[in-house]
Design a protein around this nucleic acid. Structure first.
Lengths: 326, 326
DNA sequence: ATGAAAGCGCTAACAG
DNA sequence: CTGTTAGCGCTTTCAT
């Protein structure tokens, strides 16, 4: 049997109330002497506070729940580091629930699980919620915040890069380097994808270029998607492609090399994300790099009710996969 | 205020006990009619069971806690999938606690947090515990199991690949392909590392070869380690290197290519892990592939008290980074 | 500075 | 089949 405050109280010859006060650090409500005694007994007994009981009586857990979607891209670690860091600073524990790979059932289940626990906030990492999920989430009084996903709905908390701006930035970078026929590969049909298409199209228009419809190809952000899409781009004769993720970029790169298309001489590729994988390919991949750590930090602020910008700036990191114009 | 069973009871004109019975599916203890009514009211009120309260009264949470270490290598997703899958089958929820990157404090904190909750099992993923951690863990009555780490202590539950056998397998594969001067790069000084050294040395000896001491180089399983270690191997004139992880393998590969050393013609490299990264390099990396999903599945079995083999078999996946002997 | 007692939301005997 | 009651381990008034 695990020891409880009752055991400590008995051992120390005080009431459970006193034990509770000492263990919860309610300073000024107990004498130094009883404190010493209680702490000593607690250690002897190998006591650990039962969080479940505390949470029940306090009707709130100092805990942030992160529901995470295992997408093919893997920037999650960086976001998690940021979350963990900031949460600890704010005295919150962090628990992570894994929602599989875009698996609706598991997503549901994760949300339900979290709602049944009185967490102080819910962070949804790369989760595209369906109508039911959103319903559930709203129904709860717990604040929730989408991370790395922007709804375009200011009623719903979220933190992410500005996908429109990001795509604009990538497109403009390519245009500035002399490209006019630019593809966009591997984006999805949801919020993130459409925002990026918009940014891409706007940049093209702003520079007096036309973005052909079939220059935009859907995919699932994966390496395989990248590989396959290269073939689709071949007859289109674009000179540069914006990849929806680093993984897509690597897929394009490898497929290109296999087809004897020199990167960046014949084809330029720019990735989106800027994870380590950009650095280990040959040539290394130029990317629009997202500040994932900061996204994590701010998501905690946001869900804890602190004011923060919704968008975290991105930047171009020049490596070797885009042909430079000089 | 969130609705409770009390609210439902009031609304439905029954006692809270009946509500509890229906909501906990204690079949045969209630009539179909009251069930309908209660379920209806519950839905209307937007009721969700309070797990905290349930866990408290049951003195156990149907929940497995995974403490995960963010190592540079990233096979964790696959292990997590396996864990999630099996846990769900066994009616257990899964929560994940992130322990940072070999960060002692966070590791401690994670373990303490978990102990304060009455989880049914603790899984430690790629966590090298220090003495204090182990002390804490043992003190609790909760079963715990190390995943992807073998202690060589049969008192302590663990699931992993057999690191000795794995290294033996890699070494033998290289020997069978004509190599006699073989390096081992990037292993750590803990359990995993020393087991691999042992397997490597044994294989060499079994084939009548001597393994020179400086053919074994320590590292931290990272890409950077791989890059740096290649330089150290250059004067040693080994013809093949076993990399402690896929990331180390990529580091070696890139550094070699930069130094104009053809892989696999001048230098063969074999990786350990077999994650996706092996498939995206040029040449793709031959690896000893671990069955991470299965490791995840079995770790749940183990921690839930089911009998399972401690070691999960590995296999060689031939790609393009080892020169074949024919 | 400390104790007694109520109660967080739920389950599980025990009666009926 | 259903209601009553006693807790689970802890915090928090309210007294003293």
């Amino acid at each position: 049997m695990k020891p409880t405050i009752k055991d400590i109280a008995a051992q120390a010859g005080v009431s459970i109330a006193t034990v509770s006060r000492v263990l919860s650090n309610k300073r000024g409500t107990y004498s130094e002497k009883t404190k010493e005694k209680i702490l000593k007994v607690a250690k002897e007994l190998g006591y650990h506070k039962n969080t479940t009981a505390v949470d029940l009586v306090k009707k709130k857990a100092d805990e942030i729940a992160v529901i995470i979607n295992a997408t093919p891209t893997n920037f999650s670690n960086m976001i998690l580091s940021g979350i963990q860091q900031r949460a600890t600073e704010l005295g919150q524990r962090v628990i992570i629930l894994y929602a599989g790979d875009r698996n609706t059932d598991m997503q549901h289940q994760a949300i339900t699980t979290v709602m049944a626990r009185s967490v102080s906030g819910i962070l949804l990492l790369a989760v595209e919620p369906d109508a039911t999920d959103l319903e559930l989430l709203k129904e709860t009084r717990t604040p929730f915040c989408f991370v790395s996903l922007y709804f375009g709905d200011d009623q719903i908390l979220s933190i992410s890069s500005d996908n429109k701006a990001l795509a604009y930035q990538a497109t403009e970078y390519l245009i500035n380097n002399g490209h006019t026929k630019i593809g966009l590969a591997g984006i999805d049909d949801y919020h993130t994808g459409s925002q990026r298409v918009l940014g891409y199209q706007t940049a093209m228009r702003d520079h007096g270029l036309v973005a052909k419809n079939d220059w935009v190809k859907r995919g699932d952000y994966s390496y395989e998607a990248g590989r396959q899409l290269l073939q689709a781009f071949l007859p289109l004769e674009v000179t540069a492609i914006i990849a929806a993720s680093d993984m897509v970029a690597v897929g394009l790169l490898n497929a290109a090399q296999q087809s004897q298309i020199a990167v960046p001489d014949k084809l330029s590729i720019i990735g989106i994300d800027g994870t380590f994988i950009c650095e280990v390919t040959t040539p290394p991949i130029t990317s629009v790099t997202q500040n994932f750590y900061e996204i994590g930090v701010r998501s905690v602020d946001k869900v804890m009710g602190k004011a923060t910008e919704t968008f975290v700036p991105t930047r171009i990191v020049v490596r070797g996969s885009v042909k430079l114009n000089r």
